[in-house]
Design a binder for these strands. Structure first.
Length: 262
DNA sequence: TACCCTTTGAAGTAA
DNA sequence: TTACTTCAAAGGGTA
């Protein structure tokens, strides 16, 4: 296993009360859910998945990745991971499976310790008042309609834990909304640029169509003129036909050159 | 000082 | 079994 000493994340909220609401982002909406009991900090650390092992390795070996921002770094590695072949991924998958087996063994051993029993006991105390550990299903969903928000605001006493927590939640939601807004603004800017390019392309195409129409009209007029002259030439006496045909040939050549030039 | 951000995959749990 | 949340890692930014 690639894990060291475990420092379980101890959320600030848990210092206030074991069961407090927090914001969880689901696929397309924000939901307020009840938080589980504190994580068992004495339990063995979870093993790294294949992707996590790959991520760790790439962060260590690539200077380019290391120079990126935190978010971009992970996005780049995720893209690289998606591009890996099954054989390349297998190396990490095998290592992860090995770590998993070791974790299961360590966890089975841990279950026989007093620490685990203590944690179970404390967990049962929590369960008496709320959901069991590990249960993050939405127990309570807070509606975000304007009226309900106002009502909820009015029911919370000022400067209580509930009040502070409520404010903190609102700030989290606000931060996420601001981020979403900035993303939408970026998308809008890109789309506007795209529309502008399309309009320009349309104008260019219209101009080309008009120019081509003009050329076609000229060519048609010249062709008509040529037919007329040919008719006149053929109706003249035989001695004059030959020089006139030569003359026409010259004219056709000129027309052709004129068409190429334009 | 602790959480947030971000990613994928697996553990863990309720229904 | 399904559906869902949390936690693993990283380190700078933020409250």
């Amino acid at each position: 296993m690639s894990s060291g000493n475990y420092a379980a994340p101890l959320h600030k909220l848990e210092l206030i009360t074991p069961i407090v609401p927090h914001v969880a982002q689901t696929t397309n909406y924000l939901t307020i859910v009840m938080k589980k009991a504190p994580y068992d900090k004495n339990a063995p650390r979870r093993p790294l998945s294949a992707f996590m092992l790959f991520m760790k390795k790439r962060r260590q070996e690539s200077e380019y990745i290391a120079s990126q921002s935190f978010s971009d770094r992970n996005r780049i590695i995720a893209t690289e991971w998606a591009a890996l072949s099954a054989e390349e991924k297998q190396v990490y998958t095998d290592q992860a499976a090995e770590d998993r087996e070791l974790y299961k063994k360590l966890f089975a051993e841990y279950k026989t310790t007093d620490n685990y029993k203590k944690w179970l006991a404390s967990n049962e105390t929590v369960n008496a008042n709320g959901p069991k550990a590990g249960c993050k299903r939405p127990v309570k969903q807070i509606s975000h309609t304007k009226n309900n928000d106002i009502e909820a605001d009015c029911k919370i006493s000022i400067f209580t834990h509930e009040f502070l927590e409520y404010n903190r939640l609102r700030e989290v939601i606000l931060r996420q909304l601001k981020k979403h807004v900035s993303q939408l603004e970026e998308e809008t800017a890109l789309l506007s640029k795209h529309v502008e390019n399309l309009v320009n392309a349309e104008n260019r195409t219209k101009n080309q169509i008009n120019t081509t129409k003009e050329l076609l009209t000229n060519e048609e007029n010249l062709l008509k003129q040529l037919c007329k002259e040919l008719t006149v030439a053929l109706s003249d006496n035989e001695s004059q036909i030959s020089p006139q045909i030569e003359n026409l040939a010259d004219r056709i050549q000129l027309i052709g050159l004129g068409g190429q030039k334009s």
